[in-house]
Design a protein around this nucleic acid. Sequence first.
DNA 1: TACAAATATAACGTTAACGTCATGTTTAGA
DNA 2: TCTAAACATGACGTTAACGTTATATTTGTA
Lengths: 125, 125
Amino acid sequence: MRIGDLAELAGVTQRTIRYYESIGLLAPGQREGHGHHYYTEETLLRLRKIDQLKRLGLSLEEIGEVIDLYFTDPSGIQPKQKVLVILRKHLDEAERKMDELQQFRSELQTHIERFEKFLNEAQYR
Amino acid sequence: MRIGDLAELAGVTQRTIRYYESIGLLAPGQREGHGHHYYTEETLLRLRKIDQLKRLGLSLEEIGEVIDLYFTDPSGIQPKQKVLVILRKHLDEAERKMDELQQFRSELQTHIERFEKFLNEAQYR
DNA sequence: TACAAATATAACGTTAACGTCATGTTTAGA
DNA sequence: TCTAAACATGACGTTAACGTTATATTTGTA
């Protein structure tokens, strides 16, 4: 498929795809000579994974550090120890964020309850 | 205290404090005429709360929408319904992020285990 | 009172992650 | 074959959240 279809299926703009290619996050689509680029299903999957990681708060640079894990078999990767370090770092951070989110959520709930109580009292007086 | 101490205690730069003042996230410190600004403990607490919310992924603009909740009593706030809406929005988002983080974490753990297994097998052969 | 250290203010710079033209080239279809 | 739609490439623009000078005041202290 070409860039227009890919963009639509992935829910991003063509500019985004080209930008990802320019920073090495995505391999440029195949092409013959100087014509258009053609992409496969795998690029689409990769774009979706990128989006998922983005929603988790990873920067494009961080995504670049782990994205290949999702598309290569373990025995093929070279600097394995380094990859392990990166994974553990992200794991720790994910757990920290979750803890803080828990705390934040209960604070929010407290505030909401306080407000609702106040509104009710004001209403029935 | 003056801006230097405040910055150090809060773990931010003076520039950050002035920037927050400029966008209305922080009230400028008191001063007589055209001299230096003086700050109180409350500004420090506010800076710390801002930092906490930032680490949760809220933008400064979003923080500006809820920060006053932490420093005003419920009966004093005017557009109460609107505040409730904002709180609920952030609560929903927090829960979504948590769900995705859970998923991400278990994926990470799977990958880590795969790598460790692979490394061990390579070691004992 | 003199002066170094801390502040105030203004203005230009920086990074990430694209958006938005502008212009030229390819490709599919009538 | 001709042409409109899609694509390629380049370059400048944008927003958030400050960083970094530069210059002018203000303050605490010897």
